[in-house]
C-alpha cells in the first residue's frame, strides 16, 4: 500500500510584514520551513510503514521550486519518494484549486489502485484554514477524519481519536482509502538521520517534478482561474485601547499592581 503525505512549505516565523505602499506581502528575507504539523503527518506515515511490510511513503507538495526543500526534509526523515507539483499556472491557488491539483496528482500516482492512506497536518501555520485535507478527500471521494490526536491502522481499518468538545474524546474509524489530518499530540516527529540525509540527496532518483501537463490538469480548475476566493485587501491589525503602563523595577511594579488590585477589590 501507499501512504501519501501532503506537506507545505510556509514562512518560518510570524514576523511577516505588509508593504504599506503596495499592500503586498513582503516575502523576501522571510525564511521558509516545513509546516510544523506536517512533520507529525510524515511521522505517522513512517510509523505505519515500520509496523508492516508493504508500505511506501510518498511526500507531495505544491509550490515554487524552493518547496523542494520541504520534500528533502521529508525524504531525510525516511519518506521513500517525493513529488513536487510546480508550475507557474498553479500560482494564486486558493484551497479549492490547491486540493484539485493535489488530488489529480494523487490519482495519477495511484493509477486506480485503492489501497492507500493520505496523511496531512491539520492546518498550515500561514493560512490556518485546515481546508485542503478534507477537500482533497472530497475530490477523491474518500472519507476524511480531521484533527487526530491518535491514529493507527489495523489491516485496512483506520482508527482515530480526536477531541470532540471540552473534556470529551471521540473514537472514529473508517476503511481505506481514507484521509486523516493530525494535530501535535499524535506523535513526536523524528529528526532526519545521517542515512536519511544521504538518501534524500539522491534526489535525482527520489524526487520528481510534475507540472500542469504531467498531471493533465483542467486549466479552469487550477491557479487563479480555479480559485473561488480572492483576497481583496490585506492590512496589519491595530486594535487600540486606552491603557496604563506600570514602570519601575519588577518589585516596584509588583507593589503598584497589588495595590491597584486591592483598590479594585480583586484581592
Amino acid at each position: 500500500m501507499k501512504i501519501i503525505t501532503c506537506i507545505k512549505q510556509v514562512p518560518a516565523n510570524s514576523t511577516i510584514k505588509i508593504d504599506q505602499v503596495t499592500g503586498h506581502l513582503v516575502r523576501e528575507a522571510t525564511p521558509a520551513i516545513l509546516n510544523p504539523l506536517d512533520k507529525h503527518s510524515i511521522e505517522l506515515a513512517l510509523e505505519i510503514k515500520e509496523s508492516r511490510e508493504d508500505v511506501e511513503v510518498i511526500a507531495i507538495t505544491m509550490g515554487p521550486d524552493q518547496a523542494r526543500l520541504a520534500l528533502l526534509e521529508a525524504l531525510s526523515m525516511g519518506a521513500d519518494k517525493a513529488i513536487l507539483l510546480s508550475d507557474i499556472k498553479f500560482a494564486g491557488s486558493d484551497t479549492l484549486a490547491t486540493s484539485y491539483t493535489l488530488s489529480i496528482a494523487i490519482k495519477k500516482l495511484m493509477n486506480d489502485d485503492d489501497n492507500y492512506l493520505i496523511t496531512c497536518g491539520a492546518q498550515a501555520s500561514d493560512g490556518e484554514t485546515g481546508h485542503v485535507g478534507p477537500q482533497v478527500a472530497e475530490e477523491l471521494g474518500i472519507p476524511s477524519i480531521t484533527g487526530a490526536s491518535r491514529a493507527s491502522l489495523d489491516g485496512d481499518v483506520l482508527l482515530v481519536t480526536r477531541g470532540k468538545q471540552a473534556g470529551k474524546l471521540e473514537q472514529i474509524k473508517t476503511r481505506l482509502p481514507a484521509l486523516v489530518t493530525v494535530t501535535k499530540g499524535v506523535n513526536k516527529p523524528r529528526l532526519p538521520t545521517l542515512h536519511g540525509i544521504t538518501h534524500a540527496f539522491d534526489e535525482g532518483a527520489l524526487l520528481s517534478v510534475w507540472n500542469a501537463a504531467t498531471i493533465d490538469a483542467d486549466e479552469e480548475k487550477i491557479g487563479m482561474a480555479g480559485s473561488k476566493t480572492k483576497v481583496s485587501k490585506m492590512y496589519t491589525p491595530e486594535p487600540k485601547k486606552e491603557n496604563i503602563t506600570l514602570t519601575g523595577s519588577p518589585k516596584e511594579i509588583a507593589s503598584k499592581l497589588a495595590s491597584m488590585l486591592k483598590e479594585k477589590n480583586y484581592i
Binding site: K241, A258, M260, I267
Partner: peptide, 27 residues
C-alpha cells in the same frame, strides 16, 4: 498590550514571584 488595560513590560519569570509576594503583603 494593545488590548490590555494594565501593561507591564517585564520578564514574566522575574516578575511573577515578586507579584506573588506583593499580593501576600497587600492582602
Amino acid at each position: 498590550f494593545s488590548i490590555a488595560d494594565t501593561c507591564i513590560v517585564a520578564d514574566v519569570l522575574e516578575f511573577i514571584p515578586a507579584f506573588i509576594n506583593a499580593i501576600k503583603r497587600f492582602r
